[in-house]
């Protein structure tokens, strides 16, 4: 399988803190990869570089053969770890916003997903709970027919019911053609979704592998392995 994402030796420094330290990582086309690590391990910096929000000081990133920019933004659907919709909008406005912005946005898919999530078009953004926000944002992001989906902490801080709906939506929207990159430190809840996992520590990849192979080799679930590495 060809690599859709190639990251070669990237380093990112903020003032005197090194967030990424010559990190290299290739991500193959198709499948779900979990980027696992505690807060401060470099997950969000890595995601911001992949989405073109930050530039590395050193190294190279290629997504579908291109450095992050206009083209890669058109093929990468990104769920940030915070709300990105305007407070004055209602859900219908948010759908219109996505439709205007992204050519690959599938409105019917969005409507189905929102229904599945128990959200309706008239709800106002500023009145949504944290769980509802996350469900709305994820529905919009998954409704793009993108080559790459990047979900940054999709279940952080949501209640168990919303969490299950979010996990279901992710599994239902899995397809072999696209690649999903999910960061999380809630490994127990998410590990069964991953084909591959990469453990991030101190801005570099500590361990990477196929999730099932790691379970077999280490004789433990990924959550236990995570605790062993970071505990």
């Amino acid at each position: 399988m060809e690599d859709i994402i190639k990251i070669k030796g990237i380093t990112k420094t903020y003032r005197n803190k090194r967030a990424l330290d010559s990190l290299s990582l290739n991500i193959k086309k198709g499948g779900v990869i979990g980027i696992l690590g505690p807060n401060g391990s470099g997950k969000t910096t890595l995601i911001k570089i992949l989405t073109g929000l930050l530039r590395p000081n050193k190294g190279e990133v290629l997504i579908d053969g291109k450095t992050p920019g206009t083209y890669t933004k058109s093929i990468v659907s990104y769920l940030p770890d915070r709300n990105f919709l305007y407070e004055w909008m209602n859900i219908e406005d948010a759908i219109g916003f996505f439709k205007d912005f992204y050519e690959d946005f599938d409105e019917d898919k969005a409507i189905n997903l929102l229904e599945f999530m128990g959200l309706n078009k008239g709800m106002k953004i500023k009145e949504l709970s944290k769980g509802m926000h996350e469900k709305l944002n994820l529905s919009l992001v998954l409704s793009r027919n993108a080559k790459v989906y990047i979900l940054d902490e999709p279940i952080a801080g949501v209640d168990p019911v919303a969490r299950d709906q979010i996990l279901d939506a992710i599994v239902k929207n899995y397809n072999e053609e696209s690649t999903m990159i999910i960061t999380t430190h809630l490994v127990r809840d998410m590990e069964n979704l991953f084909d591959d996992v990469a453990f991030l520590r101190g801005g570099t990849i500590e361990l990477i592998g196929n999730a099932e192979t790691l379970r077999e080799e280490k004789g433990m679930q990924i959550d236990d392995l995570y605790k062993e590495i970071f505990g």
Binding site: G31, V171, N192, E212
Partner: peptide
């Protein structure tokens, strides 16, 4: 089955 168990479809296929 992938949806019922919330497990990656490749795992079910395997």
């Amino acid at each position: 089955l992938s949806t019922t168990l919330t497990v990656n479809p490749n795992t079910i296929q395997r």
